[in-house]
């Protein structure tokens, strides 16, 4: 219940893995901000699973999240459910931990659980024209995600099945391709440069 003079709180949850193997441990970050910018350090948060059972508690730290004015944060570590699929969990910020009354707040989060992967897909991202590797390209084979290394290679461990591989790199036009994964495989994604708007081909004039 929110009393008239209570400060409200807003929760953010980030760094939730896009896919977690059943039973494996994972981490998520949680931030809480008071509507009046109060210091919320020490305030307790709880993590509830899809059944409403508390699977962890943590206290907000003393510092605010970098780049924010008053977002206090903490990190949970929890174990993924054993059953594959999307599970709706919840983070709750209980009242207390501050001299002023603060309304309780909560935020749902989706924990996507996948079966243990069968295959490894290696994606090599290269510049189409120069054939040089593209470091830091994003690779998505939903729900799996990865980023290419210095050699332009991302390795994604996935379950067998059909996937759309999406690859994008900074200042490159994204590409997509459909694959049927039945065994380990290697594929190359050739990306075209996303010509800057001021390219000599069409400069504003």
């Amino acid at each position: 219940m929110t009393a008239p003079d209570d400060h409200t709180v807003q929760l953010n949850v980030w760094d939730v893995p896009s896919a977690t193997v059943a039973g494996e441990r994972f981490r998520v970050s949680v931030g809480v901000r008071c509507s009046a910018g109060c210091n919320l350090s020490g305030r307790e948060l709880s993590l509830l699973d899809q059944k409403g059972s508390q699977v962890g508690t943590v206290k907000l730290g003393r510092d605010v999240w970098p780049g924010t004015e008053a977002l206090y944060f903490a990190e949970f570590e929890a174990q993924a459910p054993q059953m594959a699929g999307s599970h709706q969990w919840e983070v709750k910020a209980a009242d207390g931990g501050s001299e002023l009354p603060h309304a309780t707040g909560s935020l749902p989060l989706v924990v996507r659980v996948v079966s243990p992967p069968d295959c490894e897909v290696a994606i090599r991202a290269v510049d189409r024209e120069t054939q040089t590797p593209i470091k830091g390209a994003r690779v998505v084979m939903h729900p799996y995600r990865a980023m290419t290394d210095e050699d332009g290679i991302a390795k994604v461990r996935v379950a067998r099945g059909s996937y759309d591989i999406l690859v994008s790199g900074s200042r490159y036009m994204p590409v997509s391709t459909s694959v049927e994964v039945t065994a380990d495989m290697i594929t190359t994604a050739e990306l075209d440069v996303d010509e800057p708007w001021e390219s000599p081909e069409e400069v504003p004039a």
């Binding site: 999240w65 989706v110 994008s168 997509s176």
Partner: peptide
């Protein structure tokens, strides 16, 4: 963010042409 979780954007068709990314990390 729920569309990113689902891997598809029923409103405007994102997800077929480029990766989708959640908007969840402050600020």
């Amino acid at each position: 963010n729920s569309y990113v979780d689902a891997g598809a954007d029923p409103d405007f068709g994102r997800g077929k042409d480029a990766p989708m990314h959640k908007i969840d990390k402050p600020p």
